[in-house]
Amino acid sequence: MIKPKVAFCWEASCGGCEEAVLDLNEDILKVIEAVDIVFWPIALDFKYADIENMNDNEIDVSFISGAIRLNEQEETVRLLRKKSKLIIAFGSCAHLGGIPALANFWDRESILKKVYREAPSVINPEGKEPQVKTKTASGELELPEFYDTVKALNQVIDVDYYLPGCPPSPDLIMQTITAILENNLPPKGSVIGPAKTLCENCSRKDSKPDIMTLKEIKRPHEVIIDPEKCFLAQGLICLGPATRSGCGERCIKANMPCRGCFGPTDNVIDQGSKFLSALASIVDFNDEEEIKKVVDSVADMTGTFYRFTLASSLIKRKRRLK
């Protein structure tokens, strides 16, 4: 029997998704037994050239984690697309842009300026910034180009399936791999995971009051969080109502509100604005000043509501001021 060829690759990401594969624990042995891993930079010593030398569509599945922020990453994923039958966007960053895409609230110039010149820990009197090409005595050095905008994977290449989460839960990973091996995949373009949002499985669901209202918004470090009660009902921002379930409610079980890493449901285009709309609807004041007070108490509203989805949202990035 010929084993299916599988590639794992990470782009702009923290590496957590790769860890998640290892979190399959003993199940990883089943995977390894069932597939032939042809590329996995974090664990195995394959080179780009090994992929380049393969035939088109020779790889059965490529799992790609991370967003696209450098031209090197773009080249890699284009190459994998060419060589793979299926591309799976693995984890929040590949799926929606993820945390790296929060950089879209700035642009290349301001990021490089901040990091290489203004950060308090930096001493750079000559104001040097990294360049794509640098001439040195021993020849020209080349660095990948740093893009102005971070993109989700499907904004660069065609993606067949999405495996959500920061990182995806081991259950979902196993479910996906099994579906691939059994040739039992949903229609192309599907996000693999349940249709409903997190409240469905939340252990605190029954603690919700009949009518949800909010008079003040608190941050987790400001209060002692009731471990039984709905976070939103406690005045804590919990993106659960606007976030696809399937994560295993790991944050909720650790007494932390949902941050939204699984992204929106199939019926929602923009998770951040949908959550904002829901939250705004339940603010229980009619007086403009009072409403403003509640709204102003949300620290970093866009960062909080678009934490994982900025790149793939309707707003995508901060407008460039000319």
């Binding site: 409903k196 409240c199 469905e200 949800m212 109502p241 379930s245 449901t265």
Partner: peptide, 15 residues
């Protein structure tokens, strides 16, 4: 309301 999508978050009820 699509029962297959509603998770019972109760946001809508009081509105």
């Amino acid at each position: 309301i699509d029962e297959k999508l509603c998770s019972g978050c109760k946001i809508c009820i009081g509105l």
